[in-house]
């Protein structure tokens, strides 16, 4: 039920973002989504790709420090209040979100929320029990197949 997310350390200066993305592209690997967190001095690039093992290998071979994290994807209706509804469930269960990002699917009326929790299994149980739909890798990537 969990997704593998790759994280990369980047210095916060011009041109640093392009290189790892090019390295992945050269392998024919398509990005499902990404998020970039930054401070004045450095940033963390987080990637969701189907071929995460291959991407990780390529990036590490090229010298990047890559971190592998399990994250949870939830789909909600792509309309006002979609995210708020999911957040309310997490809040009432007292679950802390480390960080999150979201994107819309090209087809259909769904948006995907990616959550990073300290305990993803507990979060999945809470979300599922509340009737929310947790998306696994197979289902997620079938949207772009």
């Amino acid at each position: 039920m969990k997704l593998q997310q790759l994280s990369l350390f980047l210095e916060n200066r011009p041109g640093r973002l392009g290189a790892p993305l090019e390295a992945i592209a050269a392998q024919g690997i398509n990005l499902m989504t990404l998020s970039l967190a930054d401070t004045a001095q450095f940033g963390i690039l987080r990637l969701i790709v189907r071929e995460w093992e291959q991407a990780r290998q390529v990036l590490e071979k090229a010298g990047w420090v890559v971190n592998l994290t399990e994250v949870v994807a939830v789909d909600v209706l792509d309309r006002p209040g979609g995210l708020a509804q999911a957040l309310k469930v997490l809040e009432s269960a007292g679950l802390n979100i480390e960080y999150m990002y979201a994107f819309s699917l090209r087809r259909g009326d769904k948006a995907i929320l990616i959550f990073r929790f300290e305990d993803p299994d507990q979060a999945i149980a809470v979300l599922t029990a509340a009737g929310l739909h947790v998306v696994d890798a197979e289902e997620l990537f079938s949207h772009v197949a």
Binding site: T39, I44, Y99, R116
Partner: peptide, 8 residues
């Protein structure tokens, strides 16, 4: 290295 800004 961590995927969390705060940890870094």
């Amino acid at each position: 290295f961590s995927d969390k800004i705060r940890a870094l």
